[in-house]
Design a binder for these strands. Sequence first.
DNA 1: TGCCAATAGATTGGCTACCAATCTATAAAT
DNA 2: ATTTATAGATTGGTAGCCAATCTATTGGCA
Lengths: 113, 113
Amino acid sequence: MKTDAVRGHLDGLLLSVLESGPLHGYAIIAAVQERSGGVLELRKGTIYPALNRLERIGLLSSAWESVGERRRRCYELTDAGRRSLATERTRWRAFTAAIGSVLEPAPAPGHAT
Amino acid sequence: MKTDAVRGHLDGLLLSVLESGPLHGYAIIAAVQERSGGVLELRKGTIYPALNRLERIGLLSSAWESVGERRRRCYELTDAGRRSLATERTRWRAFTAAIGSVLEPAPAPGHAT
DNA sequence: TGCCAATAGATTGGCTACCAATCTATAAAT
DNA sequence: ATTTATAGATTGGTAGCCAATCTATTGGCA
């Protein structure tokens, strides 16, 4: 999979893996990779600015979690984030429908091949 | 639909609408728009460089067609272009499967909601 | 005890690929 | 005659993701 294939859909991916509970950056990368069957390997340089942006616009909230001396930032969906996730899913369906109908047009029905 | 949503999938779209026969630039734009239900409106500044590139790498061939004094360049799939189209379709399915499985994970089966 | 790898977070700069704007030219409409 | 639609082409701008690089802590291992 070409690396920047997620372009335009990153926000949805991030919001989606946070739907079932808060995660920190590394865990987000791992969750996306796992749920995509190992196909999508997001980069740290990709997600950290995105997470910051999503927090800035109010779709995520974050809190430092301390594990011993180690601290990590856990991100959580806000209510607005949850609504945005629903919107992203709608956008995704519209997107795949549009591209798909051009790329793989339905064969004319009732015509034996 | 955000305008540059086709990013990364443009080649497939172009090859796909040329599958059923040669078309010139304007007709390609119209075909993509029609087959996407009016959603995808490619720009001339998007397709002409792309068509040139696809011809340069051997996926398309082109010929000037004269309509009266008017001339227009008609693009046609080469054999390599036809093979590339098949590859693009495979890539598209892999892409939608990957993003889709993260964005809309299948609910656990056998669990009444 | 020192060293390396893995985990964790953050920033910088660069590149790809698409788009908006702009240009030329012809044909049809007004 | 002027405008509008068709048709092709190029230029510059920019959004968004990535590679590289930096810091810091923890744990394994020799």
